[in-house]
């Protein structure tokens, strides 16, 4: 079996790559945050933007749909179909998924995963139902967390509304109910460009047996090195540093590689 050994790999026995995940905010089928990193014909077209990221070497994409009209499911399904037709990497869709029917429509349109946040807090059994219907690999539970006094507390509505839930215990509950992955956003770090919340991410990553995606605070290439080295999370997500071209994914991957972090 000697020919099997990949002794050069940084993580013995596995070449599983750390994932770099750009996140796109979408409203009524259009990206809403400014984008100015490449020669896009239409910077508001989520499909063209997604295609560009896939060409740059993004490992996965997250679309966060913030459409607020009653047409939401229809516009999300159309978006997912367009993305699935064009993009050759996995993608997740989140925002406004409240019931099995939403998830089923998105799965049939080609989504690889869905992400649920407030709906899971309001109705934790939704996690069980989704995992049972579609498999745990389809269900990401997104958690927005903020520190209050000395505690990490789950928040809703983009960090505006505090819940009663302590973050780590909620994440463990989500895992036991059938979450296949956790997308953890630190609202204290989000937008600061001062780095990920490595302390909390390490605690969470050590406490669960499902993949953890770090989010909130990415400002430089070094922040990605830090989060992977210090916490061993599986993936790191960012939006504006990619959209504004402050970090180019090929450069980021070269730096990660130089730091012996396995990347694709």
């Amino acid at each position: 079996m000697e020919q099997l050994h990949n002794t050069t790999l940084p993580f013995p026995g596995s070449g599983l790559a750390k994932r770099i995940v750009p996140c796109l905010d979408v409203k009524d089928g259009r990206t809403v945050k400014g984008v100015n990193f490449v020669d896009l014909r239409d910077a508001g077209d989520p499909v063209e933007l997604a295609w560009n990221y896939s060409q740059q070497g993004a490992d996965e994409l997250v679309f966060l749909d913030i459409t607020a009209t009653h047409e939401r499911r229809k516009t999300m399904v159309e978006l997912v179909k367009s993305v699935a037709r064009q993009i050759n990497i996995p993608f997740t869709i989140g925002g406004g998924i409240n019931e099995i029917g939403d998830a089923d429509a998105l799965l049939n349109a080609g989504a690889d995963k869905i992400s649920i946040n407030s709906a899971a807090v309001r109705n934790p059994e939704l996690i069980d139902e989704l995992a049972k219907a579609f498999g745990v690999q389809f269900v990401i539970v997104a958690v927005d967390t903020r520190r209050i006094d000395d505690k990490n507390i789950v928040h809703l509505n983009g960090g505006r509304i505090a819940t009663e839930l302590e973050t780590l215990s909620w994440i463990k509950e989500a895992e036991s109910r059938g979450a296949g992955e956790i997308l953890l956003t630190s609202m204290d770090h989000d937008g600061t460009k001062a780095g990920f919340d490595n302390t909390l991410l390490k605690t969470v990553n050590n406490a669960v047996h499902i993949p953890v995606i770090a989010s909130g605070g990415a400002g430089s290439v070094e922040h990605f090195v830090d989060v992977f080295e210090q916490t061993n999370v599986d993936a790191a997500l960012a939006a504006s540093v990619f959209h504004y071209g402050e970090i180019l994914i090929p450069d980021l991957k070269n730096v990660l590689r130089a730091n012996n972090i396995e990347v694709r």
Binding site: S14, D59, V136
Partner: peptide, 15 residues
């Protein structure tokens, strides 16, 4: 050390 499901991009070694 190995989370299940095995999720993500891994190396494929041709035998």
């Amino acid at each position: 050390h190995y989370k299940v499901p095995h999720t993500g991009w891994n190396r494929v070694s041709q035998q």
